[in-house]
């Protein structure tokens, strides 16, 4: 039997679809790690990005820092943190947050920057406070790029969250790492197919949200024209 047909067998074996080591549970774990990492990263990066975009301050610093963060090898960060934090969720979370921050931050500040300065000036002239300018004008107009940042972060994290399995956690990475350890290629390939499938589905979801956000932008712009 070829590896391909064995992979199909692995994916369709009902024994692999139940229990704590089954595919549904591993998928949930994987989505949980991804959601947690992107969520925490967003709490840090989005407000910071909005502030940088609104005030124009520290833009170069942000580009420099996020550029360096992108260059950090995830497995290296994971190993380094794990030596101090031990096994558990901390090390993979830190590594994935480091991965998620640059696209989120870039999405936020470039989103705000993409707003026509004349629109912002007009909003100020109408007597809006800075908070109103940010929340009622800039953020709605920045939404497509903001969501684009989230979409990009989610994709990177979902594809990389497999490293969580490197130090004792679950997720779809278990299939890759356990499969490699015992040269079980159908299991590895099956796990890879699942990661790819999950990434595609999530990308589809965020593409739709981005589309909705574009609708929001045209609504705001239409309101401005009337």
């Amino acid at each position: 039997m070829s590896v391909a047909s064995e992979t199909v067998d692995w994916l369709t074996d009902s024994a692999n679809w139940s229990g704590d080591e089954g595919i549904p549970h591993r998928l949930l774990e994987h989505v949980y790690y991804t959601g947690l990492a992107v969520g925490i990263a967003a709490l840090v990066a989005v407000p910071l990005g909005l502030w940088i975009g609104h005030t124009g301050r520290f833009r170069n610093v942000a580009i420099l820092v996020t550029g360096s963060m992108r260059a950090l090898p995830t497995l290296g960060v994971l190993s380094l943190v794990a030596i101090y934090s031990g096994i558990g969720l901390t090390a993979p979370l830190v590594a994935l947050i480091v991965l998620a921050i640059p696209p989120l931050l870039a999405g936020a500040y470039s989103g705000i920057e993409s707003v026509d300065p004349r629109t912002v000036d007009a909003a100020r002239a109408m007597g809006m406070t800075e908070w109103q300018v940010l929340l009622r004008v800039e953020v709605p107009l920045a939404l497509p790029l903001l969501v684009g940042g989230v979409r990009s972060a989610v994709l990177q994290v979902v594809a990389t969250a497999t490293v969580a399995a490197y130090i004792s956690l679950g997720g779809l990475g278990r299939y890759l790492i356990d499969g490699l350890a015992i040269r079980d290629y159908p299991q590895m390939l099956g796990g890879s197919v699942l990661v790819i499938g999950l990434a595609l589905v999530l990308d589809g979801v965020f593409a739709s949200i981005q589309h909705l956000a574009l609708g929001e932008r045209s609504r705001v712009e239409a309101a401005r024209r009337t």
């Binding site: 190993s79 794990a82 031990g86 096994i87 130090i167 350890a181």
Partner: peptide, 17 residues
């Protein structure tokens, strides 16, 4: 508890913790 470091520092840390 699978730890992929061949009994290295991460395994040791987990034991000591």
């Amino acid at each position: 508890v699978p730890i992929s470091d061949f009994g290295g520092p991460k395994t040791l840390k987990a034991l000591l913790d």
